[in-house]
Design a protein around this nucleic acid. Structure first.
Length: 844
RNA sequence: GCCGCGGUGGUGGAAUGGUAGACACGCAGGACUUAAAAUCCUGUGAUUGAAUAGAUCAUGAGAGUUCGACUCUCUCCCGCGGCACCA
């Protein structure tokens, strides 16, 4: 073959690699002694939509493929699997629209994704391919659910949840976007009270926080996890309530600013507060309050977001006592106090909190200043009582603490005194809430629990009965009022109580789509489609859980490189970490953090800078690109165009650049075919040096995810090679040239394999060859160019052999330069010389 | 408001204390061709200049540290992402 036409050889290699299992992980990595000799490289597995891959997908997949191929050639035991996150709302909603059952639709989508991935030359170990919708897989997901339940990490409770009226299901807090919409479908969320299975993720808040510190993740993602967990230390201060008929004789507030406690002039509780609930149920509160609370609690989030930027509130009719001043202070209920922050009750310090200030002004509550401010610095408005003051100052109106600094000594002393007086105690709060795990939808893992009326409790089904299969339903549309579609499957619902053997009913809710992705990286380590093992997993697991997870899992985990979109910063990554922390505590896995290194792939926008979308008609299909330019040009383009994590816009024109580069490589190597028939090699020592530098650069860049500069270095090398001799004249020994081909191989697997086979006439696979060693020690006396500066300003350059770049030589040569002479002559100066780089003449 | 990331030619970007603009796209001119495509060669930050002489300016703005700053420090502006009546 003479011309570079990728589509003419790509198909051949796809078939050959598959047939020869070039990329399957041959064996387990060696046990403990050589742990560093394994690499587990993982993509966040896709949900197989009907649309197939778009050009954004290959960006992440190519990066992991390059990393994988690099380590494979370095001799590491490498695991690089892929699977399908096929349960969940997107698949189900699409199926509803298409009037099909997702069970029928998903396999076709998977087949299409797989075909496209193979076209891209991705070196997955396909023998480990798995789908979360496979009963063999979700049986294990259910098994894990039962263990978490037995461990006390799951409970069922009637609770107000975020509810998507379009998807007709309850949702986790994490699935609601800041604008109050559902992250999957974009519709406005409301609230609904539903019985829900809930994970006690809050009991792992500290563990999840602590684990972050060893992770090699982008700082932004770590920060987002930290903020989401939202650990905060403050004081709980107890305020006695006068004449309270609820079971509360006091209200507890939580605050970080206890130094202003002498300035508390009122208390505010949130409408959801338990104290109010009790007063209302005992009818011990006036009608106005009852109506106000009722109005707020029945409002949807949409309304609250829109209407409640304005603070409203009602006096409850009750009073508390400020425990430090003994002053009687009114208790209000207001919309600006949130139940899920602190204790759901706040102390009102209008002089020093802008929200309390606004509220106090509106309802004419007293303002007591307890921190001084310096006249000059402070806005006039503070003095005129038009706004609150949150700055530094000394305490006043604060009893024995007057005169101390509010943020320093005073703050410390007041805390000690409050605690010693039994008025307050340290209290850590978290933003993280427990994880709502029930979905009132069809397309998910059935929750393996049954309810027995006689025993009056929920119980897990026996593990030996797993998997609990999802019944095939003709009509599976979500029900109204939070009823699951599985409620229609009457036969399926009927079960026996594992305890008393009587009649029981199955849980009809399903798991959220996160369930499958919480542990799939474990499954890859032992999954094998060829041995037929999958059917036996549950038996083996039930006979000895610890053994089942021990070997393959402990040798491969944790995942060394994990790559996917930044949109999973909190949701998937937090949930998966939580499961692993819990499994570790249960003694089933020997690690806590599943993902050692994380990299986020930047999005690919359309050429018009908008998101690629069918409705804009700007979608680029990888099939078309591959057909015209070949998979390698596409891979190189996506890696070359920008740093990996940066958002980019598609450019077909720029893609031509990487195509041309491959073509030039092809042409260079074609010459070796002629060499075999008597072509001449005139080796060029300088080119060999450049080659070694390129080998070093590419090797280093790959493991730093700097694919763009690695490719640039290879392009530079080809440019040099061209300069070293005419196109059909060889300036490198074949044994040297082969090294270049090898470092290009992870980036352009098809082209390099074809060249290797056809022109280098090696019939093994280049992808199983050894990564080239390189040496930067050289006998070549390189030329270096030294910048000559006057006071740091470039005036001339000097090129000489490296061996001669001693200071005196450079200095005398520099002073011989007219350009330097004219600045330096007759002046006093000193000289700074940085070897091989720069000589700076500093005129005094 | 708070947290994180970023701001460099016509464009994507490179350089993390040492010649700013590597590499690529685009553009211009040329070669080859009946012609086009493909390919190859040359040029390409701005201003000034006949100049491939030289000079001046230039990495969001301003200050600082340094012999020397895209790079380090401070202040500010802008963009993107996340969080937020967080008490």
């Amino acid at each position: 073959m003479l011309k570079f036409i990728p589509r003419e050889f790509e198909k051949k290699w796809i078939e050959r690699w598959e047939k020869e299992k070039t990329y399957s992980a041959k064996s387990l990595p060696p046990a403990s002694t050589a742990k560093n000799k394994k690499m587990y490289v993982l993509d966040m597995f896709p949900y197989p939509s009907g649309a197939g891959l778009h050009v954004g997908h290959p960006r992440g997949y190519t990066a992991t493929d390059i990393i994988t191929r690099y380590y494979r050639m370095k001799g590491y035991a490498v695991l690089h699997p892929i699977g399908w996150d096929a349960f969940g709302l997107p698949a189900e909603n699409t199926a509803i629209k298409a009037k099909k059952n997702p069970q029928d639709m998903v396999p076709a989508n998977i087949a299409n994704f797989k075909r496209q991935m193979m076209m891209l030359g991705l070196s997955y170990d396909w023998s480990r391919e798995l789908a979360t919708t496979d009963p063999h897989y979700y049986g294990l997901t259910q098994w894990l659910f039962i263990q978490f339940y037995k461990r006390g990490l799951l409970y069922k409770k009637n609770t107000p949840v975020y509810y998507c009226p379009y998807c007709k299901t309850g949702l986790a807090e994490e699935e609601v976007l800041p604008n109050g919409t559902h992250e999957r479908c974009g519709n406005q969320i409301t609230r609904k009270e539903l019985p829900q299975w809930i994970f006690k993720i809050t009991s792992y808040a500290d563990s999840l926080l602590a684990g972050l510190k060893d992770l090699k993740w982008p700082p932004g993602i770590i920060e987002m996890q930290r903020n989401w967990i939202g650990k905060d230390k403050g004081l709980s201060i107890v305020f006695p309530v006068e004449n309270s008929t609820a079971s509360f004789s006091h209200l507890t507030v939580w605050t970080k600013y206890w130094e202003t406690v002498f300035g508390v002039t009122f208390l505010v509780v949130s409408p959801e507060h338990e104290w109010l609930k009790q007063l209302i149920s005992k009818n011990k509160i006036n009608k106005e309050v009852r109506e106000y609370v009722h109005k707020l609690l029945t409002k949807t989030d949409e309304q609250r977001l829109k209407e409640e930027k304005v603070k409203t509130g009602v006096f409850t009719g009750y009073y508390a006592v400020n425990p430090v001043s003994g002053q009687k202070i009114p208790i209000w209920v207001a919309n600006y106090v949130l139940m899920n922050v602190g204790t759901g009750a706040v102390m009102g310090v209008p002089a020093h909190d802008p929200r309390d200030f606004e509220f106090a002004k509106k309802y004419r509550l007293p303002v007591v200043q307890v921190v001084t401010y310096k006249d000059k610095k402070i806005d006039e408005r503070v003095k005129k009582e038009e706004m609150s003051y949150e700055g530094e100052g000394e305490l006043i109106n604060s009893g024995q603490f007057n005169g101390l600094s509010a943020s320093g000594e005073g703050k410390k002393k007041i805390a000690e005194w409050l605690i010693a007086s039994n008025i307050a105690s340290w209290k850590t709060t978290y933003h993280l809430r427990d994880w709502i795990f029930s979905r009132q939808r069809y397309w998910g893992e059935p929750i393996p629990m049954v309810y027995c009326k006689k025993c009056a409790k929920w119980q897990p089904i026996p593990e030996k009965d797993l998997p609990l299969r999802l019944p095939y339903l003709k009509s599976y549309q979500p029900g109204e009022d939070g009823g699951s579609p599985l409620l229609q499957a009457k036969d399926w619902l009927a079960a026996t109580c594992p305890h008393c053997g009587g009649e029981a009913i199955r849980e009809s809710d399903t798991m959220p789509n996160w369930a499958g992705s919480c542990w799939y990286f474990l499954a890859f380590t032992f999954w094998n489609n060829e041995s037929g093992d999958a059917a036996k997993f549950l038996d083996r697991l039930n006979s000895s859980p610890a053994d089942f997870f021990s070997e393959a899992v402990s040798r491969w985990l944790p995942v060394d490189w994990y790559v996917g979109g930044a949109e999973h910063a909190v949701l998937h990554l937090l949930y998966a970490r939580f499961w692993m922390h819990a499994l570790n505590d249960m003694g089933l896995v020997n690690f806590r953090e599943p993902f050692l290194r994380l990299r986020n792939v930047g999005m690919i926008l359309a050429e018009d800078l908008r998101k690629m979308s069918k409705s804009f008609g700007n979608v680029i299909n990888p099939d078309d690109v591959i057909n015209e330019y070949g998979a390698d040009a596409l891979r190189l383009y996506e890696m070359f165009i920008a740093p990996f994590s940066q958002e980019i816009s598609w450019s077909t024109a720029a893609l031509q650049g990487t195509f041309r580069f491959l073509k030039r490589v092809w042409e260079k190597f074609k010459a070796y075919q002629a060499e075999g028939r008597g072509g001449k090699v005139k080796a060029d020592a300088r080119l060999v040096l450049k080659l070694n530098k390129t080998l070093a650069k590419v090797s280093e860049d790959i493991v730093e995810f700097k694919f763009n500069t690695a490719i640039a270095a290879m392009m530079e090398f080809i440019n040099e090679w061209d300069k070293a001799g005419a196109v059909h004249e060889l300036s490198l020994e074949k044994s040297q040239a082969v090294k270049f081909l090898k470092i290009l191989a992870p980036f352009a697997p098809f082209t390099t394999e074809e060249i290797w086979y056809e022109f280098m006439e090696d019939k093994s696979s280049i992808h199983l060859s050894a990564w080239p060693e390189y040496s930067l020690d050289t006998t070549v006396d390189e030329e270096v160019t030294i910048a000559l500066q006057i006071g740091g300003k470039l005036r001339d350059t000097l090129t000489l052999l490296k061996s001669q770049a001693e200071e005196p030589v450079v200095r005398s040569r520099a002073l011989a330069s007219e350009k330097i002479k004219r600045y330096v002559e007759g002046k006093k100066y000193r000289v700074i010389y940085v070897r091989n780089k720069v000589m700076n003449f500093v005129i005094r």
